[in-house]
Design a protein around this nucleic acid. Structure first.
Lengths: 267, 267
DNA sequence: TCAACCTGTGAAAATCCTGTAAACGCCGGT
DNA sequence: ACCGGCGTTTACAGGATTTTCACAGGTTGA
């Protein structure tokens, strides 16, 4: 059991003081918080795979209601909390009927805002099998969160729980370097003790299993002194590799990969 | 989908004025509202098949928190709204963390209370299919929900109620790994106590009966540290197995191995 | 090049999880 | 009251998994 599935929260609010405080607490709690522009198209929110959305519709002006309706309609599975300045009963009722899950009023204690976001995304998860996200494909690898299994060219990888969660985490963050502490925090659910090598050990197990069933592909890369990065690279000399190479004749314009701590990016 | 599935709400509150107003509105809205005594045992709440619970823990005195915790623990699927008199941030946060879904403060407009209860139970209903009850076929097995029976090659499996519900649940989610907590929650109707092994015991009973009447088929698979998965697999060496193998040389119906360029998936 | 750090590896030790069987208690029917 | 079926609880043994260790091998920066 994963004690606390990390919460992915997007915030739409111009009150920078409030957002700052919230960010700090969110980081401490291991959440992934991201502030996004108001009027961000709902499609982008979908792509972010959020658990919850906290927004102040005031900043949206008259468009607020329309936007709210659009978001609620497009993301029926998302926990939505409105955090507005003054508001009337009628407005709150209207919002809640529209699909908003909770409506709080500023000024509001950040801890309470956190707790309400948590409650909303907890409820959202109910009835789901822990992960309703679709299969994840990377290289020859397919990860099915709903099955707690990973497949390569037709066969199951036969991973243990930890191995699976580690692989899943890495694959979700494809291309990003994850620090050990971050990995540990997200997979184990609590902070890593000083000197703990568990992550390294599990990385090794994963590499072994991956190499055995899908030889030649480099999936997990070490960033010395930092952490690990997942990036499927076809085995040299294979047809796949040749195809890739043809597409990108010279070196990939890979912008130095960014080390991820607790913020996140889409996809 | 029925957007306005009737809401079954229980209210625990001594404020008769408030309850009366609420009752009136609830009736007008077609809800089923029932006022229940404070400190009603959670088991009875389970039996009521509620959507939501509205309660004022103040009347419970010091026992309030313990009661709240018990109710939240046992009925994780129930939408719980606390409606208290004065309360501190710390109290609200504590409640929300405990499992309360929303916490409102009196005096509060009954319309808002209604809207919040609605939001909470709307959320709760998400993801439930519940309706379809046609016969279910898997491998040599046929499950008839309308008869509470399962058949193999003509004969009834003769399952008890719990066994049947467990098998039915697993079969409905064919291919998916269900965690014990989820299984217990859905079959028993309330949360699994820590250390409860009932699910394992019933899995064993099922396996025994299945093996006896339909030998060689692996129906229920264990995912160590996770839960169980239902997936009928023909016994190796049988005609059925050979046929299946001929149809799918590599493995299951997998959309795997279509190599996708990272630039496409990343976006 | 060297020392100081990191990381990879293999295996033992410690934990945790599941299968299994048996005992227990509840309830309805006889 | 007795009996039999059913659901629940408990205990234990065998495995599977996770953690811990010690050491070997690499990498970095002075």
């Amino acid at each position: 059991m994963n004690p606390q599935q990390t919460i992915r929260l997007a915030v739409i609010d111009n009150d920078s003081g409030f957002v700052t405080v919230l960010s700090k607490r969110a980081e401490a709690a291991g959440w992934q918080l991201r502030q996004v522009a108001s009027a961000i198209p709902p499609e982008e929110l979908v792509a972010m795979k959020l658990n919850a959305l906290l927004l102040d519709p005031a900043i949206l002006g008259d468009e607020g209601w329309a936007y709210l309706e659009r978001v609620c309609g497009m993301l029926p599975d998302l926990g939505i909390v409105v955090c507005s300045g003054r508001s009337t009963v009628a407005q709150r009722v209207r919002g809640l009927r529209l699909g908003v899950d909770d409506w709080i009023t500023k000024p509001c204690h950040p801890e309470e805002a956190m707790a309400r976001v948590e409650a909303v995304s907890r409820r959202r998860r109910r009835g789901r099998t822990e992960a309703e996200s679709g299969p994840l494909v990377a290289g020859e690898l397919e990860i099915r969160p709903d099955q707690f299994q990973a497949f390569v060219s037709g066969g199951s990888l036969d991973l243990t729980r930890r191995e699976f969660e580690l692989l899943h985490l890495l694959a979700e963050a494809k291309g990003q370097v994850l620090e050990r502490e971050t990995i540990y925090q997200r997979v184990w659910g609590y902070a890593m003790a000083h000197g703990d090598r568990s992550v390294d050990v599990f990385i090794r197990k994963l590499r072994q299993k991956l190499e055995k069933r899908s030889p030649g592909w480099g999936y997990i890369h070490t960033h010395f002194g930092v952490g690990y990065r997942f990036d499927p690279e076809p085995a040299p000399g294979t047809a796949v590799a040749a195809a890739e190479a043809a597409l990108e004749p010279s070196a990939e314009p890979e912008p130095v990969s960014q080390v991820v701590h607790s913020s996140f990016t889409a996809g």
